[in-house]
Computed example of a mutant assay.
Amino acid sequence: MNHIEVINMVPKFLRFYEEASKTGIDADVRWRLWQEHYNFAAVPPGEEGQKMARELLDQAFSKYAEHVQDLKDWNPETSKLERTLKAIKEIMGYHQPVNLTVIYFVGGFEKNPFVAPYGEGVAVCLPVEGGESDIFLAHELTHIVHAQTAGLTPSWERTIGSTVMQEGLATRISEYYVPGEPEGKYIEHQDGWLEACRERHSDILNGIIPFLDDQSADTVSRFIFGTGTTGLRREAYYAGWDIVGKLLEHGVTFEELAHIAEEKIPVYIKCVISD
């Protein structure tokens, strides 16, 4: 049987927000309060991640006021977690129990759920400041199940080839599980991004080939958060969305893709792009 542990970071954020909203608190003091009382964001580890977290906080702080009451009223919905996890396991052909930690947090309205190492395993981290999303939930639970089927490393540093496959499966399975939404709902972080990527389709795929075996933190950050090789952000997401979509059209199943061992994924992705 699956085991799901839920950690709710929302009350911790609300305590920070109460302190940071007092009269006379400037941006620098607010940042120190955030680090002291909350210190949780969808950013990579290290100094660069802290810089990104500061930027997110500065940009988002004025927006929180209209959402505070919703955050105070919000509670986790465990039954939805259990139902979605069961469905994702069936789609990916995985039949063993899953031990899962889900962390609900308040982000910066950037719509960026993520999976991160936690204890001896990993945790699904889901933002709630803009309301819950069934697409986000399916996307991140796909990452959890995929890690089991393919023996994926839980660390931030993994090959770009593995990253492409992980994001491709997560975006396409969320599309399959929550059908009928505009394509951008499953993958875009900002309006117009998907069309811009399609206009640079060949450049993105050809540009990513030399990096498929690279697993350095800087390279992973470059293709997930940064501007890749074309000046467009999140190229690994686009490559995964396109490649897995094409494979599905040609009759490859989610289960087949999910069971490709991690060490074989970069070569597999390179062959698909070359074809």
Results as ranks from 00 to 15, higher is better:
Ile135Tyr: 05
Glu90Thr: 12
Val115Ser: 02
Arg158Trp: 03
Ile260Gly: 02
Glu132Leu: 12
Glu19Tyr: 04
Leu248Asn: 00
Asp214Thr: 06
Arg83Pro: 00
Val178Thr: 12
Gly184Val: 12
Gly130Ile: 09
Val10Arg: 05
Ser216His: 05
Glu110Gln: 12
Ala20Val: 06
Gly184His: 07
Ile187Ala: 13
Phe109Ala: 06
Ala20Pro: 02
Thr230Tyr: 09
Gln35His: 12
Gly207Ile: 04
Gly108Cys: 09
Val244Thr: 10
Ala239Tyr: 14
Ala138Ser: 14
His201Pro: 02
His201Asn: 15
Arg222Val: 01
Val220Met: 06
Gly231Lys: 11
Thr227Glu: 14
Gly119Leu: 05
Met165Lys: 03
Leu14Asp: 01
Ala236Gln: 06
Glu82Arg: 03
Ser62Lys: 13
Gly93Val: 08
Arg83Ile: 03
Ala138Lys: 04
Glu47Ala: 15
Ser274Thr: 12
Ala87Lys: 14
His139Tyr: 04
Arg234Thr: 11
Pro117Lys: 06
Lys86Glu: 09
Arg222Glu: 09
Gly107His: 02
Trp241Cys: 11
Asn2Thr: 04
Tyr17Gln: 11
His37Arg: 15
Glu157Cys: 10
Glu5Ser: 13
Ile160Glu: 00
Gly192Ser: 11
Phe225His: 12
Ile160Lys: 06
Trp193Ser: 10
Ile25Val: 15
Tyr268Asp: 09
Glu132Asn: 13
Asp28Phe: 01
Pro76His: 12
Ile204Arg: 05
Ile135Trp: 06
Gln190Cys: 03
Leu212Pro: 10
Arg233Gly: 15
Ser274Cys: 08
Gly107Ile: 09
Val252Gly: 07
Lys89Phe: 02
Trp31Phe: 10
Arg83His: 07
Gly207Leu: 11
Gly228Leu: 11
Trp241Gln: 08
Glu157Asp: 12
Leu85Trp: 03
Ile269Met: 15
Asn99Ala: 14
His139Trp: 01
Phe114Asn: 02
Asp70Ala: 15
Val106His: 07
Ile173Trp: 00
Lys22Asn: 03
